[in-house]
Write a protein that binds this DNA or RNA. Structure first.
Lengths: 190, 190
DNA sequence: GGAGGAGGTTAGCAGCCGTTCACATGGGGC
DNA sequence: GCCCCATGTGAACGGCTGCTAACCTCCTCC
């Protein structure tokens, strides 16, 4: 028997979709309700506020990203493999949950202060995993450069939602190839 | 004598900064006014509406991107040079105007229908310039793949605003290197 | 079979926000 | 010197939106 998603999760999924498409402020409480077949204020039986929905959404994404990434790096046998695993992990995430990735990339500013602090902290730790892994394979990057490179790769991979012209597998292959190529050590013209 | 920016342009710049930081709906008319030292409704002496500001902002960015890109490609002597020029152009743009790039990447959804159509059309033409250039240098990409690759490179380059840890020149060098590497023909393991 | 809680409904309120209005003012051309 | 238009102001309005309130209806469990 497949897991029946709880009402909370239904709501969160629908809200993520809407937030991704129209932006946090562009979506009304009634819209979210309508998307799950109930209407407006019924949402308050499940969440304290609209802000709370965004907060829960973003902290959960950030936690999943961080510990999935950490786990894969820990399990990898070599730095190169770690990097490939990390790229694969992020690509899969972005392709499987484009709405969540979009919301996370765009709507940090709409969080409550405490929520934002929490999410920021998680994101920093995730970036740190990337920075360490990158520096173990691309030896000519100093730390700030590696950090900037990590953000650039996120941008590359997270671009997914804007172009659905390829099927999932082709897209995964393309993004993986491009991401790894962009992080390859500088080609030294002999 | 330096160009004195017209009031309109002052407003547009301030609004771009605010839209980039808080999102279109997260910024009030009064906020924009305050940012240029006038207050609230005075803006209506210069723009018909808040939507009109976003509309003008995005069409002007899209036009500048398109014809700068087109010009550089036309002036290039070889496909490889054309691609390098295109990457350099987009990188410069993103680094010089991070707010505009951010707004363009995130706030398409907030445009009026006719404005959105206009901007979409311009963006499509810009992407087409990239697709053609990419396909002339990376011969193993079919058209949909090249289009997806172009979007991915935009994501990579537009990630700029999220990481200001490097100075402009280093950042430009890094982004250019990564973008070109990500588009290099697939390394065939001999 | 009656009590009660979970989850839903509609009506309404309060605050915000884009926009308009009536009015001030100051610098240039006749 | 006067007029007038460009530019700015504060007050007010109307609609939208997040949230609360009051009420209904099952389903469950003793």
């Amino acid at each position: 028997m497949a897991e029946k998603p709880s009402r909370r999760d239904q709501i969160l999924n629908a809200a993520a979709e809407l937030f991704a498409r129209h932006g946090f402020h562009g979506v009304g409480i009634d819209d979210i309700g309508a998307a799950v077949g109930i209407s407006g204020p019924a949402l308050y039986r499940h969440f304290r506020s609209k802000d709370a929905m965004l907060g829960e959404m973003l902290t959960s994404i950030s936690e999943r990203l961080l510990d999935g990434g950490q786990r894969r790096v820990d399990a990898a046998a070599s730095p190169d493999e770690a990097l490939r695993e990390l790229v694969g992990w992020h690509v899969d995430f972005a392709l499987d949950d484009p709405a969540l990735i979009t919301v996370q990339a765009r709507n940090l500013a709409n969080l409550t202060d405490p929520d934002r602090r929490r999410v920021r902290a998680l994101q920093r730790r995730y970036v740190e995993v990337w920075v360490d892994t990158i520096r173990r394979t691309v030896t000519d990057f100093d730390e700030p450069t590696a950090r900037a490179a990590a953000h650039a790769v996120f941008g590359l991979i997270n671009s997914t939602p804007h172009s659905a012209h390829l099927d999932r597998d082709q897209m995964a292959a393309l993004l993986t190839r491009m991401a790894l190529a962009s992080l390859a050590p500088a080609a030294v013209p002999s």
